[in-house]
Simulated scan of single mutants.
Amino acid sequence: MNLHEFKRIILEYHREINENVNTAFRFLGVNYGLTMLQFRLLMEIYRQGPHTIGSLAEACGIAGANISTMCKKLEKQGFVRRMRDQTDERVVRIRLTDFGEGTIREIDRYLNDKLTRILANEAEETFEMITAGMGKISSLLLKMGSDDEGEVGETP
């Protein structure tokens, strides 16, 4: 396979995977009024406990200003509570409300049931191949992102 073909295939799979993730998680918006990104934030808080805006941004790889805006919206929807730190008012802490925690547990249970049903007949080797392949893609993309040679518009 040549470089051009490899690049085309990777970009096409990226598009397909994004579309399929959106389709698979469409129920979040329909049933809970959540975007995939909001769900990721809520799951991070659910798994790791309360966060600051900064720690949540870092954990999810998203700019702090965007996290702050999303958390304000999630607070209005009743999923989280935002609190100023008593020792440093610049710091905002985010925690799940009882409603938010119950919702995430419900979604997590639904996903576990669905995945268990769908993946029940898959061989262990399938999971190993998928995770190894995704790890390799992630590693290659990390190398691309950290390579400071060949920036667009520059001539070597």
Rank of each mutant, 00 (worst) to 15 (best):
Lys7Cys: 12
Lys7Arg: 12
Ile9Gly: 04
Ile10Thr: 12
Leu11Cys: 10
Glu12Phe: 12
Glu12Ala: 15
Tyr13Asp: 15
Tyr13Ile: 15
Glu16His: 13
Glu16Val: 13
Asn18Met: 09
Glu19His: 10
Glu19Thr: 07
Glu19Met: 08
Asn20Thr: 07
Asn22Val: 00
Leu28Thr: 00
Gly29Arg: 04
Val30Leu: 06
Asn31Gly: 03
Asn31Val: 03
Gly33Ser: 03
Thr35Asn: 01
Met36Arg: 07
Met36Ala: 06
Leu37Ala: 13
Leu37Glu: 15
Gln38Val: 01
Arg40Ile: 09
Arg40Phe: 12
Leu41Ala: 04
Leu42Thr: 01
Met43Phe: 10
Met43Ser: 06
Tyr46Pro: 02
Gln48Gly: 09
Pro50Leu: 05
Pro50Trp: 07
His51Ser: 02
Thr52Val: 10
Ile53Trp: 03
Ser55Asn: 10
Glu58Asp: 15
Gly61Cys: 12
Gly61Gln: 11
Ala63Arg: 13
Gly64Cys: 06
Gly64Glu: 13
Asn66Leu: 11
Lys72Met: 05
Lys72Cys: 03
Leu74Thr: 01
Leu74Cys: 05
Glu75Ile: 08
Glu75Met: 09
Lys76Tyr: 08
Gln77Leu: 05
Gln77Ser: 02
Val80Ala: 06
Arg81Thr: 15
Arg81Gln: 14
Arg81Pro: 06
Arg82Phe: 11
Met83Tyr: 11
Met83His: 10
Met83Ala: 10
Arg84Trp: 07
Arg84Ile: 14
Gln86Gly: 11
Thr87Ser: 12
Thr87Arg: 12
Asp88Phe: 09
Val91Pro: 08
Val92Ser: 09
Arg93Asn: 15
Arg93Ile: 11
Ile94Ser: 02
Ile94Thr: 03
Asp98Leu: 07
Gly100Leu: 07
Gly100Cys: 12
Glu101Trp: 00
Gly102Gln: 08
Ile104Ser: 03
Arg105Lys: 12
Ile107Leu: 05
Ile107Asn: 01
Asp108Asn: 07
Tyr110Met: 11
Leu111Cys: 06
Asn112Trp: 06
Asn112His: 08
Asp113Cys: 07
Asp113Glu: 14
Leu115Gly: 02
Leu115Phe: 09
Leu115Pro: 01
Thr116Asn: 09
Asn121Glu: 04
Ala123Leu: 05
Glu124Val: 10
Glu124Gly: 04
Phe127Lys: 01
Phe127Tyr: 05
Phe127Trp: 04
Met129Gly: 00
Thr131Cys: 10
Thr131Asn: 11
Gly133Thr: 09
Met134Ala: 12
Ile137Asp: 05
Ser139Glu: 13
Leu140Val: 15
Gly145Val: 14
Asp147Arg: 15
Asp148Cys: 12
Glu149Met: 14
Glu151Asp: 07
Gly153Cys: 07
Gly153Trp: 04
Gly153Glu: 05
Gly153Arg: 03
Glu154Lys: 04
Thr155Tyr: 08
